[in-house]
Amino acid sequence: MEPQQTQPYYGASGDLPMVSVGQTVPPANMLDKLAGYESIDAGGEERYLPPPVQPPYNAEGGQPQPNQQWSIPSISEDAARRALIKYAAEHVTYSKRPAEEMVFKELIPYNMYRYRLQSFTESRSPEWKSEPYYGQTIESSGFGAPPPPWEVPVDVPEMFEKNKKKVQVPNTASVKGCHRCMAMGKIPCDKCLQTGRVKCMMCDGKGSLFGDDSRCNHCMGNGIESCKSCSGYGQQKCNVCQGKCQLFFYIQLTVKWENNKFEQVIDQQCDFPIQKLNKVTGKELFSDQHFQVYPIMGFPESRINQVSQHGLQEHWTQFGKTSRIIQQRHTVELIPVTKVHFQWKNKENSYFVFGTESKVHAPEYPGKKCTIM
């Protein structure tokens, strides 16, 4: 069935839109000028808009603070030994004898605090979209002015989980004749240059395969064959409107949610590589969650107060002007770290037991076996 003949879109001046050969992005004069969306275009990159004015960052707000002096007792010798035996068992080339036979000299506990801030933000980016018109419902500006980008209703997903949604902005839809094919549904075939014929692929247009007496049966000796791209018609279905002659235009709003993190460990300078704490948990001492949380004050470890102030200021400066901060959450954990000094075969050594999981860091473990290659 031949596609319905539709009049092509004409610009405001009455002229046909300027379209280059092969252009699939609609020309600018095809896009309606809608209040609040005048600066957006079609087929561009995501450009996230400034959010509505948010309350300024407040560093002086009240905040429930922990009032207990927290400390961690050293783990027991039995627990320290079990942790090292398990560590040795996890390494094929390690002997468990040092862990089983060692003599403890001293167990030194350290209090390491981890401050973690999460700011759950939302960003919005509008963009003109077009697709073949299959009879979609047309909610045009005739139904009312489209809502501003930050007033388009979008359900917020689970807090502190990265997500992304694309929604159609109400009252921005319209239908126009396709600019690519001038609303004809067909475009010239670029494979055969509208002739419907191409050089035979079997004989490379020679008409014969091995000589003058060996006629090519594929093209019957003519050296040409019917173009497969257009089935020999010289035209093919428009790749923009998919032969429908019309395009459905609307503004699409991309809404992106991010969980932005700030984290810092208060190092006690005990020669322990603090990056290893990333994979272990501690005991949560403090947690607070609100639209805007306030810096921690009066914490037993004064550096936590400073880190909290810095992290919150950094997030509001970094995200406050480009995204809407929906919710914030910050926590303080106390991570157990114990340095164990021991003696084995008259030699002294040490290792660390850390995290509630009792992980071990023992780079100088004396029970490493030699392997013969």
Rank of each mutant, 00 (worst) to 15 (best):
R329W: 06
G298W: 13
G234W: 09
I224W: 05
Q7H: 12
Q69M: 03
E225F: 00
C227Q: 04
D15H: 07
P295R: 11
Y94K: 07
L334Q: 04
V293C: 05
Q235H: 02
K369A: 08
Q246G: 12
T6H: 14
P98G: 09
Q194I: 01
I138G: 02
Y57L: 15
M112I: 08
E2Y: 13
A183D: 03
S214N: 05
K369D: 09
G36Y: 11
E314I: 03
N349C: 02
K206D: 08
Y37H: 04
A99H: 06
V21E: 12
G177Y: 06
E301G: 04
S13T: 15
V169E: 08
P147S: 12
I85Q: 13
Y365G: 10
F299M: 01
C192E: 05
Q264G: 02
K191Y: 07
Y48R: 00
F104K: 12
E158M: 08
T338R: 03
S141G: 13
W316K: 00
Q328I: 01
P64W: 04
C370Q: 05
M220L: 10
Q54S: 05
C189P: 07
R324C: 07
V175D: 00
K86N: 13
S76L: 00
A99N: 05
D212M: 03
P3Q: 04
M201Y: 09
N239W: 08
T137W: 07
F354E: 12
P55V: 06
V167C: 10
R47K: 11
F210H: 14
L16M: 15
S141D: 11
G207F: 09
G298Y: 10
P273K: 04
H341S: 04
V21F: 14
K105A: 06
V25G: 04
C238L: 03
Q268C: 14
L312M: 13
E77A: 10
N58A: 06
I304C: 12
R116G: 09
N67R: 02
K206N: 13
S323D: 14
L84T: 06
S74W: 08
P109C: 10
E45D: 11
